[in-house]
């Protein structure tokens, strides 16, 4: 057995590293730089029932050791994702597990997307996006209310053919309340954390820099928040956690795994280094040696 291998509900991963949703699209251009089969899995861009145009520009602003983004779930819609994007990945990388990020404005929309996208041959799991901070309806409003989060999880679980990982928002007073609620509603796991709501003012115009006023903060700046929240959720739940938030090195990945994550998603680090994922995968064995870690699995305290 490989030192890097990880088994999670619906996901047999040859290594624990996968690109996070939104930073990687459907991988088509990244595939020009490296073989996507090297990845443990791929979390693809959020799918909504209808195509979404997203937010006004500018949609991205750099911050100290991070970035604010407010893309606003721009995506080509479920039909195009089912007939073009997912088949493109399946034709070229049939062994690569795909985690489909699902978003919507209403419960009905989430349910309709889960029902259909979970039948795609290469979709191994769903990441239920109840935490996008950049849309007016749906998104984070589901993820910050335990009752709504639980109801949505239950409804999506009922129609999904694959395990459902609920993507938790850090923009709450107590993340464990939401985590407990969605676990009770049947979630198979968590992915965490989504971005933290932030804002930047342009001194010249004295107005918010981003077209959406606010955006989600990601990057190295948020890693300590991710570590703290993964630790909190690990203490109240044994469910698997796909950890993310500021990971850009093998050491960062190990830190989130030690906090309680079982696999790692890499987000905005892909902007700094488009080959961040393979570079982290390559660096893991040596970093594991340095800290006397035999296998990634051995770090999992819950499974």
């Amino acid at each position: 057995m490989s030192r890097l291998e990880v088994d999670l509900p619906g996901l047999h991963l040859k290594n624990p590293i996968m690109p996070a949703s939104g930073c990687f699209g459907f991988g088509q251009h990244y595939a020009e730089l490296y073989d996507l089969n090297r990845l443990g899995a791929i979390i693809v861009k959020a799918a909504t029932l209808e195509p979404r145009k997203g937010n006004p520009t500018p949609r991205v602003a750099e911050t100290a050791s991070g970035a604010l983004n407010a893309i606003g779930l721009q995506n080509p819609g479920l039909d195009a994702i089912m007939t073009e994007k997912l088949p493109w990945l399946n034709d070229r990388f049939p062994e690569l597990p795909v985690i489909a990020n699902v978003a919507g404005s209403t419960e009905d929309e989430y349910v309709a997307v889960c029902r259909r996208i979970s039948t795609a041959p290469n979709v191994a799991a769903i990441e239920l996006n109840i935490s996008c901070p950049n849309v007016a309806h749906g998104g984070m409003q589901f993820g910050t209310d335990p009752k709504m989060a639980a109801e949505l999880t239950r409804a999506c679980k009922a129609v999904s053919q694959v395990p459902v990982y609920v993507k938790l928002s850090p923009n709450v007073t107590d993340i464990t309340v939401i985590a407990k609620a969605v676990e009770a509603a049947g979630a198979d796991g968590f992915s965490m954390i989504n971005t933290l709501v932030g804002m930047q003012i342009d001194l010249k115009t004295r107005k918010p820099f981003l077209g959406n006023r606010t955006g989600g903060l990601s990057g190295a700046a948020i890693k300590p928040v991710a570590v703290r929240m993964i630790d909190q959720v690990r203490h109240i739940s044994a469910l698997p956690i796909i950890g993310m938030g500021g990971v850009s090195s093998a050491e960062d990945a190990l830190e989130l795994l030690m906090a309680g994550a079982n696999a790692i998603a890499v987000g905005s680090a892909n902007f700094g280094d488009p080959q961040a994922c393979p570079h982290i995968i390559d660096a893991l064995p040596k970093a594991m040696d340095q800290y006397h870690i035999e296998t990634i699995k051995s770090l999992s305290t819950n499974l």
Binding site: G22, F24, Q28, K45, G54, V60, N69, F271
Partner: peptide, 11 residues
């Protein structure tokens, strides 16, 4: 952000 057509920041 990504510079190669995946993140939809620069539309």
């Amino acid at each position: 952000a990504c510079g190669m057509g995946e993140c939809a920041a620069c539309v």
